[in-house]
């Protein structure tokens, strides 16, 4: 299969190398199927995902990419936290720096929204119910300077950071989320508090949120330093053309 010329050896083909070339057919068949899969895989994967999600939702956690979130961590496992000691700090260009416990967060105006979560790697989870405090409400509580240019978000996993401009931060679809699907956010989704930036790719929705710094200019976050777009609008960044989220 690799080289057709045999010069140094007197023996030609081995005697048991007779019969139909089934091996070659399998290899070529797989290459053909693979090519079809690459071309039509997007449609197929949506069909497979929704079938598995309906027929056997329990399998979603085990099978590749079936109707659910994929969990990406950049550190060793999930960062640990203590519900009682957890604080979300808001510092920088603010008139009253905050250190919010989970109870403090529940006392701020609560907002819910049901919107999709779109990952830059191609998967999307439709209609996720989120709730928490609008980022703009947190910024109001802290007396953030509206003319400050940017926000920097810090995760207590020790590595993950994110950024938004002030204008983006004040949108009504950017949430400091404390629940998903009506339940407190689970560990793998960034417990106890994560950001949810609805109109942008998922990497902007930083998990395990513990700090918000109001500053003058945008400091690119963890993924942005690794080549992803800073302004990560779904469908018009990162070279992607996904449908906008709904």
């Amino acid at each position: 299969m690799c080289f057709s010329k045999e010069v140094e050896q007197p023996l030609k083909s081995p005697p048991d190398a007779t019969g139909a070339p089934v091996g070659r057919r399998i290899v070529l068949g797989m290459v053909g199927l693979g090519a079809l899969g690459i071309i039509f895989g997007r449609t197929a994967s949506q069909a497979v995902n929704s079938t598995v999600a309906t027929a056997a939702p329990g399998l979603s956690g085990v099978l590749p990419g079936t109707g659910g979130f994929r969990i990406y961590t950049v550190t060793n496992g999930y960062p640990e936290y203590n519900v009682d000691k957890y604080r979300l700090t808001v510092t920088g260009l603010v008139s009253s720096p905050l250190s919010l416990s989970l109870a403090d967060l529940t006392e701020l105006p609560q907002t819910g929204m049901t919107k999709d979560f779109q990952c830059v790697t191609g998967w999307r989870v439709d209609d996720v119910p989120w709730s928490g405090v609008l980022l703009s409400d947190v910024l109001t509580a802290a007396g953030a300077d509206p003319s400050a240019g940017a926000l920097r978000f810090i995760s207590f996993d020790g590595a993950y950071t994110e950024s938004l401009t002030m204008e983006q931060s004040l949108r009504p679809d950017v949430l400091v989320a404390t629940t998903m699907f009506g339940q407190p956010i689970t560990e793998e989704h960034g417990a106890p508090v994560r950001l949810y930036v609805a109109p942008m790719y998922g990497y902007k929705s930083i998990k395990w949120l513990s700090g918000i710094e109001v500053g003058k200019t945008v400091v690119p976050g963890y993924w942005e330093e690794r080549g992803y777009s800073v302004d990560a609008w779904v469908g018009s960044s990162n070279g992607m053309t996904d449908e906008p989220i709904t």
């Binding site: 693979g34 690459i38 071309i39 895989g41 997007r42 994967s45 497979v48 790697t121 191609g122 992607m240």
Partner: peptide, 25 residues
Amino acid sequence: VMYFNRFFPDDLRTGSTFVHDWLAL
């Protein structure tokens, strides 16, 4: 395709992810 994803339209990227995932299984 997944590694050099910038050079491919996202339909092919999603298709490649799909094929890679299931074949790997």
